[in-house]
Amino acid sequence: MTSLLVTGGTGRLGRPAVNAFRAAGHQVRVLSRRAGPEHVVADLTTGEGLTAAVQGADVVVHLATSARGQDAQQTRNLLGAVAGLRHLVVMSIAGIDRIPLGYYRAKLEVERLVEESGVPYTILRATQFHDLVAQVFGAQRYLPVVVAPKMMMQPIAVEDVATRLTELVGAPPVKGRAPDIGGPERLWVPELARIWKRAKGSRRPIVPVRLGGKVFRAFAAGDAMVDGPAYGRITFAEHLG
């Protein structure tokens, strides 16, 4: 049995990951700013409580992320507390070195910090989650149409990512990046929108659009997808139920 500490364990990926780790027989604690069952209270942003939280952990799985640009600082704080750790597993995103988004640049900085830390590590990049794709369509609920960029995506289910993370925590550190993983389908976003529309019973028309700019061109070029065979098994339609 391996003792795991999971950051971001209550998030979109964290919940299924924690469940998968426990189902595999690991002892799991979740880093949180709030007390709770199997929680360890600490603050990644300030670093308060991190050294004590990490004590006793064989593996730390770093899933926490911030929409406010704090990923790099949180990672610095975590790395300062994990001296002597056996294995650090870090979640990242496919294509971040090719797509010029600010959030992706922050993720690249996280990878650089981990690579230079001297801590035995494994970095896993995955394509966009099914949940995020559905969220983008759902956010347009007040529009008379569903706008869908003319590009392909390869979304993956968080449950599939959790399965891969479980494999990695049970293996020695890669000391680099594990092979990137993506979902079982490469689909045009307008087709993903049609799948979402059927699942939600929406009557709004799908409007394919071609967007400009470096970010869209990178997505349209397939830079957010992965090479090689798909890892994920759950399709977008299956995710929507």
Results as ranks from 00 to 15, higher is better:
Val147Met: 13
Val161Leu: 02
Pro173Glu: 05
Arg22Tyr: 06
Val161Asn: 03
Ala67Phe: 15
Ala24Met: 14
Val61Ala: 04
Asp180Gln: 00
Val61Met: 01
Leu165Gln: 05
Val114Tyr: 09
Pro144Phe: 01
Gly102Tyr: 00
Leu165Asp: 09
Asn19Ser: 14
Lys214Gln: 11
Val147Trp: 13
Ser66Glu: 09
Arg86Phe: 06
Ala126Met: 01
Leu79Ile: 08
Gly47Ala: 06
Ile195Cys: 06
Arg198Asn: 03
Gly213Ser: 14
Thr7His: 13
Leu187Asn: 06
Leu143Ala: 14
Asp227Cys: 02
Leu4Thr: 03
Val90Asn: 06
Leu85Phe: 01
Ala162Tyr: 08
Val114Thr: 10
Gly25Arg: 04
Val61His: 03
Pro184Trp: 14
Glu48Trp: 14
Trp196Pro: 14
Ala199Thr: 11
Gly95Met: 01
Ile234Thr: 12
Leu113His: 09
Ala139Gln: 15
Leu31Pro: 06
Ile99Trp: 01
Arg34Ala: 02
Trp188Gly: 01
Arg141Thr: 09
Leu5Val: 04
Gly49Asn: 04
Glu116Arg: 08
Gly80Ala: 00
Gly118Glu: 02
Val133Glu: 01
Val89Lys: 01
Gly118Trp: 06
Phe137Met: 07
Ala134Lys: 00
Ala237His: 03
Leu192Asp: 07
Lys150Phe: 09
Ala42Lys: 07
Asp97Met: 08
Leu101Gln: 13
Arg22His: 01
Leu63Arg: 06
Arg233His: 08
Thr166Ile: 01
Arg210Thr: 10
Gly118His: 07
Glu159His: 15
Ala94Val: 14
Leu5Asn: 01
Asp131Thr: 13
Thr51Gln: 11
Gly212Cys: 12
Leu211Cys: 02
Gly241His: 15
Pro205Cys: 12
Ile181Phe: 07
Val18Trp: 10
Thr45Cys: 03
Ala157His: 15
Ala52Asp: 14
Gly232Pro: 07
Gly138Ser: 11
